[in-house]
């Protein structure tokens, strides 16, 4: 139909015009657009300042003048594109009269290639983040290749190459999406530093213990699920209430996080026993009373883990029956106690 000496912008434009007429029969489209490339090439060559108009609006004008019905479903879309086209034209006419705006527009035009790269990066980042494979402003291995590919695509589209039907609409929507999310993405990339490490440590710990990935109480990255206290004589204590330096209960489980009751043991699928909270005299159930006991688990009517009917709480085996006693302090000032269980 066309030979190759036409500028690629014109070929792309003509294909977009044909796409906008695609609801008509093939014959009608050919009738309307036969020779379009030649006409456009000539009109552009004659008026060098002229830019290609919006293909959708152009197709609409062509269609109306030819007495063919308008394209119903895409009216809203066309309205938006026409509005954007008008805005662009208005900016152009304002900038012609105002040198300050003109230089601003010129500057914005000059940095467009930067935007082409930024949007490719942002798109890659979103995709990588979906798989948890973003690393600050960068990515894990193969995602760099994805970014390279998207960058080439983005630049080619930015230059009006590699056109396809509805490209303009898609690129416009994509630009808006990236413009909206770019600030949050920058924020996330900026504050990323090391959080992935914590996440992975938590994940490893979680998969080791078979319990929640984000344990509130941990030692060397491994969750602490129970605490055994011994008195000065080395004898095990029960009912020990523990608090941290701020008076917060040392609760090993984040029951509010939705994982439900903390699980002690599980078979392949289900939890077989649960930690039992202690009851305070106030009636409150708490998990900072150690050592915690366990109770057999069964699924309740909501398919949630719950203490099995008729089951009794039983103490869990302590790591040590007794531990060495503490040397009585000679001085009245208490001495720091070294960890006992090496």
């Amino acid at each position: 139909m066309t030979t190759s000496t036409v500028a690629p912008e014109i070929v792309a434009f003509a294909s977009e015009v044909r796409a906008a007429l695609s609801d008509l029969s093939r014959e009608e489209v050919d009738d309307l657009t036969d020779g379009l490339e030649a006409d456009l090439a000539e009109s552009l060559a004659e008026d060098l300042r002229r830019t290609l108009p919006d293909p959708v609006a152009y197709a609409a004008e062509l269609r109306t003048a030819a007495g063919l019905p308008g394209r119903e479903p895409s009216d809203a879309k066309r309205g938006l594109l026409v509005a954007m086209q008008e805005l662009t034209e208005r900016i152009a006419s304002v900038s012609e009269r105002n040198p300050a705006i003109a230089s601003l527009v010129e500057f914005a035009d000059a940095v467009r290639p930067v935007w082409w790269i930024v949007r490719a990066w942002a798109t890659t980042w979103m995709l990588a983040a979906f798989f948890g494979m973003e690393r600050g402003f960068g990515f894990e291995g193969a995602w760099w290749v994805v970014m390279l590919g998207l960058t080439v695509l983005s630049i080619q589209w930015g230059r009006g190459r590699w056109g396809f039907p509805s490209q303009r609409e898609l690129v416009t929507v994509g630009n808006i999406v990236v413009a909206v999310v770019i600030v949050p993405i920058f924020g996330a990339a900026w504050s990323w530093g090391g959080s992935g490490g914590d996440y992975e440590a938590g994940f490893d710990a979680g998969s080791d213990s078979g319990y929640g990935a984000d344990s509130p109480l941990s030692m060397m990255g491994k969750p602490v699920t129970n605490v055994y206290a011994y008195d000065a004589a080395g004898q095990p204590l029960t009912g020990v209430q523990l608090f941290d330096q701020d008076g917060r209960p040392l609760d090993p489980f984040d029951v509010s996080s939705g994982d439900g009751r903390p699980c002690v043991d599980r078979d392949e699928v289900d939890c077989t026993s649960l930690f039992v909270p202690a009851q305070l005299v106030t009636g409150k159930s708490v998990y900072n009373v150690f050592p915690l006991a366990a109770i057999a688990s069964a699924l309740d009517e909501d398919a949630q883990n719950a203490p099995a009917p008729g089951a009794v709480a039983t103490p869990l085996p302590a790591p040590f029956a007794v531990v060495p006693a503490v040397q009585p302090a000679a001085a009245p000032t208490p001495q720091p106690v070294a960890p006992l269980n090496e």
């Binding site: 009738d31 309307l32 379009l36 006409d39 456009l40 009109s43 108009p53 152009y58 197709a59 004008e61 062509l62 269609r63 109306t64 003048a65 030819a66 007495g67």
Partner: peptide, 12 residues
């Protein structure tokens, strides 16, 4: 006169 209007008119 717009290009597209003329092309459409020719076709009609």
């Amino acid at each position: 006169v717009g290009d597209a209007s003329v092309y459409g008119t020719l076709r009609r």
